[in-house]
Write a protein that binds this DNA or RNA. Structure first.
Lengths: 149, 149
DNA sequence: AATATTTATTTGATATATCAATTATTGATT
DNA sequence: AATCAATAATTGATATATCAAATAAATATT
């Protein structure tokens, strides 16, 4: 076995662990910053409101595809968002299986307020990483996604 | 704003989404392969048994650090592993707050059997990715981790 | 030695993930 | 129109994540 292959094996061994750790570290970091600024919303909830705002009339199924979540998870997150009064839901009269989701004024307000914080978080998290590196990161992640499908 | 900066912004916007999607796609893929091969164990459970095998006498706290999990999660995963009879636990007589964790014969058996499958999964998931790219991936992920701490 | 502090683990509460099964509705088939 | 198949969302069960609080034991302090 060549030196290069040995090194490859080690990297393979840790890549998924490091990926998991990175995304988890970022989540904890971002969530803490939300909490510290007094926002009572989770990152996942924020993502879903944003998806609805940017895609009026979107169905829960489509939300799930967009934010890469299971239908069951979407249902439950939306329940919480309705309870928190960031969303309103009605039965869709064209297709009674679906629901119409509307972001409330309060929901729009929190999305806007949180938006700058999210941008800051991303900036902090990616500080010192070169554009080329970021591109390779994205490209490689996409390759992993397609390899697993 | 230069072209380069604009592009940077877009990449920043999607990087965390793509990371999340990649790790989740891999998890689903790997877990499905375990299930399809008749193994009744989750990836997280497998990781924890492995940590104990490779580090005899390890405490739950240390396990948590190693596999990057909260103490509470470790406690609950270990409960399940004891119930599944892959682990045995006793009170540590040197420090009665800690517990001694021992992998059972059955536990060792499943780790070994699953090991090849895990290697295959990683190979499949990383197919077509160059060593240099993998290195940049790892380096960049580590930078994100340190940036968030 | 008694008290206070620290540490390891557990427990409770709440959110999310995943799969399977169910419900309600719609669209297609006969 | 009645039946069947497909689809959207929900629900149930179980696993994990996260934080805070509680418990129990060890260590440090007075």
């Amino acid at each position: 076995m060549t030196q290069n292959q040995t090194q490859m094996e080690k990297l393979k061994d840790i890549t998924f662990y490091t990926m998991d750790k990175a995304i988890r570290t970022y989540r904890i970091f971002a969530q803490k910053r939300l909490r510290d600024n007094g926002y009572k919303i989770t990152i996942d909830q924020w993502l879903i409101i944003k998806a609805i705002l940017e895609n009026p009339g979107i169905s829960q199924q489509e939300i799930g595809e967009k934010v890469f979540k299971d239908n069951a998870s979407v249902t439950r997150i939306i329940e919480l968002l309705v309870k928190s009064e960031y969303l309103e839901r009605e039965v869709n009269q064209n297709d009674r299986r679906k629901s119409n989701l509307k972001v409330t004024v309060e929901g729009k307000r929190i999305i806007e307020k949180v938006h700058d914080l999210v941008l800051e978080n991303r900036k902090t998290a990616l500080a010192g990483i070169l554009p080329e590196e970021l591109e390779i990161l994205n490209k490689t992640l996409k390759r992993i996604i397609s390899n697993c499908n």
